[in-house]
Design a protein around this nucleic acid. Sequence first.
DNA 1: GACGGCTAGTTTCCTTGTCAACAAGGAGGA
DNA 2: TCCTCCTTGTTGACAAGGAAACTAGCCGTC
Lengths: 153, 153
Amino acid sequence: MLTDKAPAGLQDHLGYWLRLVSNHVSAAFARRLDGQGVTVAEWVMLRELHGAAPLPPSRLADRMGMTRGAISKLADRLLDKGLLARTADPDDGRAHTLSLTDAGCVLVPTLARLADQNEAEFFAILTAAEKEAVEAALRRVVAHRGLTGMPVS
Amino acid sequence: MLTDKAPAGLQDHLGYWLRLVSNHVSAAFARRLDGQGVTVAEWVMLRELHGAAPLPPSRLADRMGMTRGAISKLADRLLDKGLLARTADPDDGRAHTLSLTDAGCVLVPTLARLADQNEAEFFAILTAAEKEAVEAALRRVVAHRGLTGMPVS
DNA sequence: GACGGCTAGTTTCCTTGTCAACAAGGAGGA
DNA sequence: TCCTCCTTGTTGACAAGGAAACTAGCCGTC
């Protein structure tokens, strides 16, 4: 064979386990949300707007780690579902703001409950101390590398 | 406002931090791979085939957590790049097997080095004990929930 | 040996994201 | 004022994966 000696296996990387678990958590959550006719990205946007002042799309793009183009289309879909409103900024002719409709506001707590269930179900085997330790470690990585804006996919 | 009391924030969920870090690790790795003209999914397939017997696409689909359709197209792309060979099974007229070309074999260690660098750079702030703890916790989640087949995206 | 059902891979269509081009509006300087 | 440059949001072309239809080949049963 034309190979060097075998390199480190995928499973030797922390990144592998992170992604394995993370993807499964997301996939399971997506299945739950599916029953409510909502995607994960839509949930994130709804959550981002819930209980907050109306936000311009560009701000959401930053916070959600997506491009403005993606936000624009995502907003369109939520608009079609009647969960979101798009309002022109009276002061700046270019700007718009996005906010939840009443239906959107009502829906969020339901979805949040699904998120809680998903979280609980997945990490049930871990003790509180373990969860704390993992979260603390991840927070340190985030802080140290200045990570910001969750890429939705 | 028409809301319940505010639900738990996204950042109160372990899943949030998992995905935030995981996505950034993947994105950073993708940028590194980009210099080699390879995507993350392609890397995973190459890695999966490296130093192993030729595998049928269906087997890769299981191991990589993708559909057979996706594997089919992914294999096409790697074929075009000359990194992979598709061979008809002489015993079973339906079956094929995928294996690395010499070029593919040669490339994998280079990519593996990039993966190692990425891993090291991201988790440099964590002590060995912390990394161990996180990995152990994640492994327990995986074992307990019977997670298998890393969904590539 | 032919037929109904299975299995392996591929292909088609749909979704959802990125990137780049674009239109429209604002802001500042000559 | 008018010109230039920047910013905001949208749109169109493309990429990549999932679901399901489709093709081809196997296999057990009659």
